[in-house]
């Protein structure tokens, strides 16, 4: 199924066609989403306007975890089927995921102070997200730690797969253990515990974050492919 897209030249062509659209959609969704998040949504009955931090915090958290899952999937494909494009995708996604995780940690800290009364606690949810951040940093470091990029990609792929156990731990930490962090509001078996007037901006922002992630991923993968091509051309010109 992915064989069709695993061809780097074809991928570059498709990416070039998708990019203008995904860029435009990202900008529009951010404008609409931020308008809803900052102006056209009510304050919370307990937290007041502090609740607006959620519209950045929660989408970042979703993307940070989704990005890691994507990297783990790409790593499995790279290790098992040896698709070169899968390695490139994993390498391109890691710094994005690290960035989103950092946003989660910072906004969470800023949100924790006024609501809980503390910037940071070592509860299971917060700690496992910090571990996710270190996994991203480790992945980036391992990718670049070898002279031979293929060996770096291999080592990083193994790390990504091993670190994947952390993803369900993050997700279910609030259900398995007593934590200061509250349980999930949106992804529950019954109806979301969040008012529709607040769910709308949250989902809009999540879509905006997702499209931003996809756009940046395509840009990074394409520039990686172009850099490889430039290197090959320089080598052949030097001969």
């Amino acid at each position: 199924m992915f064989h069709r897209f695993a061809n780097p030249a074809r991928f570059s062509r498709i990416a070039a066609r998708v990019l203008p659209w995904s860029t435009a959609a990202t900008i529009i969704l951010f404008v609409v989403g931020l308008y809803f998040a900052l102006f056209a949504s009510p304050a919370d009955y307990q937290q007041g306007d502090t609740v607006r931090i959620m519209y950045v915090h929660v989408p970042s958290a979703w993307i940070a975890m989704g990005c890691y899952t994507f990297i783990a999937l790409m790593s499995a494909i790279a290790l098992i089927w040896k698709h070169p494009l899968a390695d490139i995708a994993a390498r391109a996604a890691a710094p994005l995921g690290a960035g989103f995780t950092l946003i989660v940690l910072i906004t969470g800290s800023l949100w924790g102070k006024p609501t809980w009364g503390t910037w940071w606690v070592w509860d299971a949810r917060l700690t496992s997200v910090l571990v996710l951040f270190f996994l991203y940093l480790g992945h980036i470091a391992l990718t670049n730690a070898f002279d031979n990029p293929q060996r770096g990609a291999r080592a990083a792929a193994v790390l990504a797969l091993v670190g994947f156990v952390n993803i369900p731990i993050i997700k279910f930490s609030v259900d398995w253990w007593n934590t200061l962090h509250q349980p999930a509001s949106v992804t529950r078996l019954d109806a979301p515990a969040i008012d529709p007037a607040m769910l709308t901006p949250l989902l809009l922002m999540a879509l905006a974050f997702l499209l931003y992630f996809i756009t940046m991923l395509l840009v990074r993968m394409r520039s990686d492919l172009n850099a490889a091509r430039a290197r090959a051309l320089r080598l052949s010109a030097a001969e």
Binding site: D44, P183, A184, D195
Partner: peptide, 18 residues
Amino acid sequence: REVLAKHDETYMPKEVAE
């Protein structure tokens, strides 16, 4: 020594709560 507030997963506008 230290007291932290724990809030639940419910979010709603003031009017709805009232």
